[in-house]
Design a protein around this nucleic acid. Structure first.
Lengths: 228, 228
DNA sequence: TGGGTGCTTCGGTGGTGATCGAAGTGTGCG
DNA sequence: CGCACACTTCGATCACCACCGAAGCACCCA
């Protein structure tokens, strides 16, 4: 009668598999060997794990030549992982976040921007009244919709079930940052404009000095404009 | 560096423990023996499981005489369980919901109303423009705030981190219903007015005929008014 | 067509943990 | 006090599963 939680939770509950899944939280598709390295196990073992994750439909695979690229099935799965990350961070406050300063500054959280810059943008948008912070929920104000339309957002494409705006409490900053379709668009826009690029084999987002300045100006982020 | 997901997920990943945790999704505190019955295991085994859940701070305990009442630590833990329930329901669509019709109609989802009546209220509130459905997010409109204030809600008490309004996608109806502080208030209000009461040892919420009618009228729920 | 690479399947090993019987602690009730 | 009940601790058993070595399959390139 009740759906069986333990199946899925048990899959995530293994140390190696959880490492793979959190690695996939980077949003990009990874090959089996990359995931094996990430989990620190032999390829055969990784293969067995990936087969199980596939059977449970937590991940999907795309074959490309002799490589197999795995990624999280969708935002729902990513959301569960994220919730677990937050819960784990809340329970064990020993680790306050990533040690790598660059990773702490800006990184990818499945498909949107997290880290110091992520919360800075969120705060700046709220400050200007473009979004409204309601605790766990976030809503786009009419002014915000107008502003983002001018910035190039085509809102007609956001017709799916996925929420437009969504706050995401990150485990490093313990502060809200922008997720949802709009959060995804924002990160893509940053890449599109060349303000930043992804670092290989990492969730880190590397801003160029000029890009950071433009980013701070565009979103009117006081902290960053003064720093840059 | 990353918080350890596998610890927590592994705890939920056991069949017996997941049964206990979903039982605790009923929101009320349960004794160790009740939980043992729920999980279909011996008391000693249950005790061992509960000790682990306590150590991980997923549950809290309140001693009362020779009984120990366990309940989920907070809404954050409940949220993780709920997400997992939804994910499990999405993956294995074999079970479309609870078989028990009464349970399907109205039940407790941690601290708010779920089931057919839960989504009916949600729809009715949206229809009257008291709340605004934004996919995953839900916001209370100014009219809604006014209406609920008149209905007896003291909004000044909702100052915590918990969101006032929150939609909750239930695994039986696959439709939104009202969660968050306001959802909690609504359910308590239903009990307070004597429209319904909880069935012992179950998540079922039993409406009296008169109570159901008053409930439907009060929230202007067309489906229920015609049925009742 | 060969060799290199990425991934998978198979079989055996080892460790972890769920389970329950039996016995121990504490609380309430007559 | 003595019994009953709720829960815990201890110890032993047993099953499951992560892990890796070895071998096999699929794909690409020279």
């Amino acid at each position: 009668m009740q759906p069986d939680i333990s199946q899925i939770a048990g899959l995530i509950g293994d140390s190696a598999r959880s490492k793979m899944l959190t690695a996939l939280m980077g949003g990009r598709a990874l090959t089996a060997t990359e995931l094996a390295l990430e989990a620190d196990i032999m390829p055969q073992t990784a293969s067995s794990h990936l087969a199980k994750l596939l059977a449970a439909e937590l991940i999907v695979v795309r074959k490309q030549g002799r490589h197999k690229y795995f990624q999280l099935r969708d935002a729902q799965v990513a959301g569960v992982i994220e919730n677990l990350l937050n819960l784990a961070a809340a329970v064990s406050p020993a680790v306050t976040g990533p040690a790598d300063p660059a990773l702490r500054r800006a990184r990818v959280c499945y498909d949107h921007l997290a880290g110091e810059y992520g919360v800075a943008v969120y705060d700046a948008l709220a400050e200007q009244g473009l979004i409204l912070d309601q605790g766990e929920d976030t809503i786009l104000t009419p002014e915000g919709k107008q502003w983002f339309s001018a910035a190039g957002v085509d809102f007609s494409q956001f017709k799916g079930r996925r929420p437009l705006c969504k706050s995401c409490l990150d485990w490093s900053e313990r502060r809200n940052h922008l997720a949802g379709s709009l959060g995804q668009w924002l990160l893509q826009d940053v890449f599109r404009r060349g303000w930043a690029s992804r670092v290989a084999d990492s969730r880190t987002v590397a801003f160029t000095p000029a890009g950071l300045k433009a980013f701070a100006t565009h979103y009117q982020i006081p902290l960053l404009t003064s720093v840059a």
